[in-house]
């Protein structure tokens, strides 16, 4: 099976662990996972004003690139990229007036009308790889790892691009069960991590993120699983700051779902890239004697 994926800028620098783990897992599962050969930033957030079409151009250009290279489907790993590409795609597919304006503006590109399907990697795993296939290929099940399911905003809202029916976490639940982990459901699974406010109003964002971590910990989670590098930044990279200011009392290990997949498939350090997570992530796996090879040597 050959599949085109769109990585997104952050996965090429700050979130290499999200990408590397996915690429290695796909290789292990026999999927030919090819990066889109030419792409630009997706724009990260969807423009919400009716007359502001210029901000849809970035994601549409990526979809044109996918169409150009003959892909009828593009898989995304980053939640924000997923949301941005999927929503722009709906406009191009369903809104003839906006579609014409955008196509006319992009007169150097081929006309586009939603030919490419935008799929999040979790949906791809369920629908095309199959959780049963994954379960059969798991070498080191993550037995006993109590992982909180965190979707955040962009996988779940708005409804027309949600990766599953509103309010549901069945997808991640089934995924975690397939790799042997114990899914933990908690009230803040869909609560925004503070998003881009981490740059504009960092205190506000940190407060919100701390609340999410606290809620997950109280629900009995030993770790939290997500798919967005901005959520990862706010929820993981800011934990030191939160502990220092007393907003949370303990570290909560944060994982990209792709890393847990790679670990369960028995892939090594270079695939799982736990070295790029905060320290506590490797520590909990070591303490539970999970993913032994993937965490060996990480201080």
């Amino acid at each position: 099976m050959k599949v085109t994926y769109y990585p997104g800028c952050t996965l090429k620098t700050k979130a290499k662990n999200l990408e590397d783990a996915a690429v290695a897992s796909m290789a292990a599962l026999g999927v030919d996972f090819q990066e889109l050969s030419r792409w630009n930033c997706c724009g990260a957030v969807h423009s919400l004003a009716d007359d502001d079409l210029i901000h849809h151009v970035a994601p549409v250009r990526d979809l044109v690139r996918a169409m150009e290279q003959g892909s009828d489907k593009v898989v995304t790993l980053c939640s924000m990229c997923y949301n941005s590409l999927a929503r722009a795609n709906l406009i191009m597919r369903d809104d003839p007036v906006k579609r014409k304006t955008i196509n006319d503006f992009m007169d150097e590109e081929k006309d586009y009308s939603g030919e490419v399907e935008v799929v999040h990697f979790l949906n791809f795993l369920r629908d095309e790889v199959g959780f049963d296939t994954i379960r059969a290929k798991v070498k080191y099940p993550l037995n006993g790892l109590k992982a909180a399911i965190y979707y955040g905003c962009t996988l779940a809202r708005p409804r027309n691009v949600a990766i599953e029916p509103p309010g549901g976490t069945q997808l991640m639940t089934d995924f975690l069960e397939a790799i042997g982990a114990t899914p933990i459901h908690f009230a803040d699974a869909f609560t925004c991590c503070g998003s881009y406010q981490i740059l504009a109003n960092p205190e506000n964002a940190v407060n919100v993120a701390a609340g999410i971590l606290d809620c997950a910990a109280k629900a009995g989670a030993e770790a939290l699983v997500l798919s967005c590098p901005l959520c990862e930044f706010n929820l993981a990279k800011k934990q030191g700051e939160m502990i220092q200011s007393g907003k949370i009392s303990n570290n909560l290990p944060i994982f990209y779902f792709t890393q847990l997949l790679a670990a369960a498939l028995g892939l090594g350090k270079e695939a799982c890239r736990f070295d790029l997570n905060e320290k506590c992530s490797a520590e909990i796996l070591k303490a539970k004697n999970l993913a032994v090879e993937a965490v060996a040597g990480i201080a």
Partner: peptide, 18 residues
């Protein structure tokens, strides 16, 4: 690349208008 990002943060205002 981060050094370039820090010197020219306006990079991230690109809208890919081409």
């Amino acid at each position: 690349a981060e050094s370039v990002h820090a010197l020219y943060p306006e990079l991230f205002r690109c809208v890919a208008c081409n």
